[in-house]
Design a protein around this nucleic acid. Structure first.
Length: 496
RNA sequence: GGGCCCUUCGUCUAUCGGUUAGGACAUCAGAUUUUCAAUCUGGGAAGACGGGUUCGACUCCCGUAGGGCCUACCA
């Protein structure tokens, strides 16, 4: 693939005749300090693809010592709610990708957008279109059948008809030549201008549209690099035309591939999760998400597990892969397990308690302390906080434990007697550490003339009641002497 | 229908004309073993297809097939 040099010299797009015409001098985006932005629309959830785009924008800004901004694209009044805005704010905060300035709300800037439309109209680069919904639908059908872009008859019709007819304002794009978007990840992408329709700038109710607002805001906010999803690549050409019409420098574009589900189809709820809040609820750590998401569609040699500092040092949009990627739960789990091992136990204890509460299980005052004692013993085997929660649950159980049939079946007379003797042997174990307990266990089975397996399974059952538990010595350690011996005694008296 | 993007193991990726095509996850086998897990060792697994260009192509060009995005008075 042919790629432009990075950072790009000059504009991110050019207009024909030639693919890279000698432009009039405009300020180059690369001369300015880097400013990136994430511009989600508040629709109720924050898609994981949006999260990754945010991450890439954040990494790029950090790498260049630039600024990372947030703009809420709330021009669609029907769908935008305050709650939905909060979801975005919470999502970014959870991911640790907070913007360097307060969020900019697009709808609040409608006056600025209208001013741009006014300027475009004055320059003759926009026109009022009086097509009705029906006429538009008919034209859409015609154009589709003819395989061409939609055209409005009002494009070249100066005189408006009646005075009070509703109209939209459309951009008056060139019909000849071509527009090339010098995308930082795709390379130069050429569009014939005649394939680009005249997009609506102002709705008939006077509200600015996305394609206008995005250009006006990105310019006004001084965005130098537009890093966004692949789905906007087509828009980039038409947006470039607006920059040009306004005599604004064109920012550098970098279109990220999409994230698909494991089956290659568009990622949806069906694939298990799609919103960042869902990943949080499923027990993934934000640092694991950052690492995994960064690795999905971007690479730095064979590096798989890396810190934020490394990602920032290494990140470059030219290393972003151009093909869409599929979400792989196995790999996410692996990465999450890695960060679970690294995580502070106190933090994990809090998260586990929180997960238990969400499950409807109230935690008691000394539970946190108990969790703290097991977590280091079991976290290596957990892929998520939810799994960790289940792995920890046995310590919090209250005596007497209810034993399931499988465990009761193991407790025959011989085993019960042996457990009795083991209990006695453990009673005076002074140190009560995994090491000493394991040694004591081994001594015991040797003295009994049996293998560890003979006593291990029933002991485990009695200690955990059938819930998952770590190895015997660890389980005993986590439970403590009193609780451990108590649970054994409970079981023995229960079956006597 | 039209425009645009994409195509290396099952998955994420490395390779920037010359490699036994590397790594990670998953998987399989073995070791260990007190269930599960963890851990250790080893194995299998890829350039969509067809044409070019070239001494030489996964790498460059063209075509085909497949997938995706856009084609809104949504963003």
């Amino acid at each position: 693939m042919i790629r432009p040099p990075t950072p790009p010299k000059g504009d991110g797009a050019g207009t024909a005749p030639g693919p890279n015409p000698p432009d009039r001098p405009t300020m180059s985006s690369s001369d300015r300090p880097v400013v990136t932005r994430i511009a989600p629309s508040p629709t109720g959830s924050m898609h994981i693809g949006t999260a990754r785009t945010a991450l890439f924008n954040w990494l790029y800004a950090r790498h260049h010592g630039g600024t990372f901004l947030l703009r809420i694209e709330d021009t669609d009044r029907e769908r935008s709610t305050e709650a939905a805005v909060q979801v975005i704010l919470d999502g970014l905060a959870w991911l640790g990708l907070e913007p360097d300035a307060p969020a900019v709300f697009q709808f609040a800037r409608a006056d600025l957008h209208r001013q741009v439309v006014h300027d475009l109209l004055a320059k003759g680069r926009a026109y009022r279109c009086y097509m009705t919904i029906e006429e538009l639908a008919a034209e859409r059908e015609r154009s589709r059948a003819e395989g061409r872009a939609i055209r409005s008859p009002w494009r070249d019709q100066e005189a408006p008809p009646g005075s009070n007819l509703p109209f939209t304002v459309r951009f008056k794009g060139p019909l000849q030549g071509e527009t090339v978007v010098n995308d930082l990840v795709k390379g130069p992408v050429t569009f014939r201008n005649r394939d680009l329709d005249d997009l609506v700038l102002l709705r008939s109710d006077g509200a600015p549209t996305y394609n206008l607002a995005v250009v006006a805001d990105d310019h006004d906010m001084g965005i130098t690099h537009i890093i966004r999803g692949d789905d906007h690549l087509n828009n980039a050409a038409r947006q470039s035309l607006i920059y040009r019409a306004m005599d604004w420098p064109i920012p550098a574009f970098a279109h990220m591939p999409m994230i698909h589900g494991p089956d290659g189809a568009k990622l949806s709820k069906r694939h298990g999760a799609q919103a960042v809040g869902e990943f949080a609820d499923m027990g993934y750590l934000p640092e694991a998400m950052r690492n995994y998401l960064a690795r999905l569609g971007w690479g730095h040699g064979d590096d798989e597990l890396f810190s934020d500092a490394q990602a920032i040092a290494w990140f470059d949009v030219k290393d972003v892969v151009s093909a869409p990627a599929r979400l792989d739960w196995n790999k996410l789990n692996h990465v999450n397990n890695h960060y679970l091992r690294l995580a502070d136990d106190q933090r994990l204890a809090d998260l586990v308690a929180e997960a238990m509460n969400r499950q409807g299980r109230a935690t008691e005052p000394d539970d946190l302390q108990k969790l703290l004692s097991v977590i280091p013993l079991v976290k290596d085997g957990a892929k998520t906080i939810l799994e960790l929660r289940d792995l920890c649950a046995f310590v919090l159980a209250h005596r007497p434990l209810t034993l399931d049939a499988k465990i009761i079946a193991m407790l025959d007379a011989e085993t019960r007697e042996r457990l009795e003797r083991l209990s006695l042997a453990l009673r005076d174990e002074a140190a009560w550490t995994p090491e000493t307990l394991l040694a004591r266990l081994r001594e015991f089975v040797t003295a009994e003339g049996v293998g560890l397996g003979k006593i291990g399974a029933p002991l485990r059952g009695v200690l955990s009641g059938g819930a998952p538990a770590p190895d015997l010595a660890s389980a005993l350690t986590a439970l403590g002497r009193e609780e451990s011996l108590g649970r054994i005694a409970d079981a023995l008296s229960q079956l006597r």
